[in-house]
């Protein structure tokens, strides 16, 4: 250690450690660390988490799969495509086929979005078509405002929910297709309305698959 010299004000350097590790050794340390942390963080930690959740929360850990009569019909947290009049319809989805060869809505192994900017003509044209189609299939007059979530594509292409407004506008169509009283269908939808989590977080919403499973179960 150098003794501070009162006449030399700047750059008083303390000697670094007496024997710094030689460079080849430091390189070896680096590779050993890379290997060790790959084992601990990249294999040990995720495999331990998999083992523990596999025992404690097996349903969720496997993707919250919903079965009906022993057959898997979907995942409770993912959306799926509905087009039949008797079903509640979800949001537009922009996912493509797995090989990328064309559109395939709600493809759960290839999540995707439009990524269209607000001024892109493709966005305007798509929304215009969807508004017209939504009004037509639900028997709404030309001037009826359509909830924005019903005519815009979600971020994941797998959004499981719609807003209450979007769900309620479809009640008449569903009731007609199922020969059920309108009030009955509306009751099912309201029963499946999820509020804000803990009363604060997120937005209230209707899970489309849950409603449709309940509607099918009514008959």
């Amino acid at each position: 250690m150098t003794i501070p010299d009162p006449l030399f004000h700047e750059n008083i350097r303390l000697q670094p450690e007496p024997t710094p590790t030689p460079l080849p050794r430091l390189l070896l340390n680096s590779f050993l660390a890379a290997g060790l942390f790959t084992l601990v963080c990249g294999l040990g930690y995720p495999l331990l988490t998999t083992a523990v959740t596999g025992v404690l929360l097996p349903h969720q850990a496997q993707g919250s799969l919903v079965t009906q009569g022993g057959k898997v019909v979907g995942s409770a947290v993912l959306g799926q495509q509905f087009t039949a009049p008797k079903y509640l319809h979800g949001r537009p989805s922009m996912t493509s086929k797995t090989d990328g060869s064309g559109p395939q809505p709600y493809n759960a192994e290839n999540s995707g979005a439009s990524n269209w900017g607000a001024t892109n003509a493709k966005l305007r044209d798509s929304v215009q078509e969807r508004i017209a189609a939504f009004r037509q299939e639900n028997g709404l007059s030309t001037g009826t405002p359509v909830p924005v979530d019903a005519v815009t594509a979600s971020a994941s292409g797998l959004d499981p929910d719609v807003s209450l407004a979007t769900a309620l506008l479809q009640v008449n169509r569903i009731a007609q297709a199922r020969n059920l009283p309108v009030a009955e269908v509306e009751k099912v939808i309201r029963e499946h309305l999820t509020g804000r989590q803990f009363g604060v977080l997120g937005e209230q919403r209707v899970n489309v698959l849950a409603v449709n499973l309940a509607l099918d179960g009514q008959k």
Binding site: T50, T53, G63, G74, F82, T83, E109, D216
Partner: peptide, 20 residues
Amino acid sequence: PQTLNAYATATTLEGAAQNI
């Protein structure tokens, strides 16, 4: 999810296949 199982295959309510 937290699993090493292969991708799941579902048959949607409308009868389409959905690989998850």
